[in-house]
Simulated scan of single mutants.
Amino acid sequence: MKKISFLGAGSMAEAMISGLLQAQICTKEGIVATNRSNDEQLMYLHETYGINTTRNKRDFIQDADIIVLACKPKDASSGVSSICEYVQEHQLIISVMAGIPTSYITQLLGKNNPIIRVMPNTSATIGKSATAISASLHANEEHVALAHTLFTTIGVVQTVEENDLDAVTGLSGSGPAYVYYLVEAMEKAAQEIGLDHQTAKPLILQTIIGAAEMLKHSQKHPSILRKEVTSQGGTTEAGIATLQQYNYEEAMIACIKNATKRSKEMGEVYSKEK
Rank of each mutant, 00 (worst) to 15 (best):
G194P: 07
S123V: 04
E228L: 12
R55W: 01
L20D: 00
T53F: 04
T34S: 15
S172M: 03
M16S: 04
P202R: 10
H148M: 05
S37D: 09
I133G: 12
G8W: 09
E265H: 03
E14M: 05
A130Q: 14
A135G: 08
S134H: 11
Y270T: 02
T230F: 08
G10L: 11
L165P: 01
L195A: 04
Q107A: 01
C71F: 03
V87G: 04
N112F: 03
L150M: 13
C84K: 14
V168Y: 04
A15H: 12
K261R: 14
Y180E: 07
T48K: 14
E14F: 07
L150E: 00
M43G: 01
E273L: 06
I93Q: 02
T152D: 03
D63A: 05
K257F: 01
A200H: 12
V157E: 06
V183F: 02
Q232L: 06
M43N: 10
E250D: 08
M12L: 14
T199E: 05
V160K: 13
T169P: 12
G127H: 10
T207D: 09
T235D: 01
Q91E: 12
G170I: 03
R55L: 03
Q158P: 00
K264M: 09
S223W: 00
A135L: 13
L108M: 05
K188E: 15
T125M: 13
N163Y: 13
S231C: 06
Q191D: 08
N163S: 12
Q41C: 00
Y248S: 05
E213M: 09
Y248P: 02
G10P: 08
M252N: 01
I193N: 02
G8D: 09
G170Q: 06
Q62I: 01
G50Y: 10
K264L: 10
E141A: 13
K57V: 13
I115T: 02
D196K: 09
N258E: 15
S123H: 13
I253H: 13
E273V: 00
S218Y: 08
S78L: 11
A139C: 14
G30A: 13
T230H: 07
C84F: 05
G155A: 05
T153W: 00
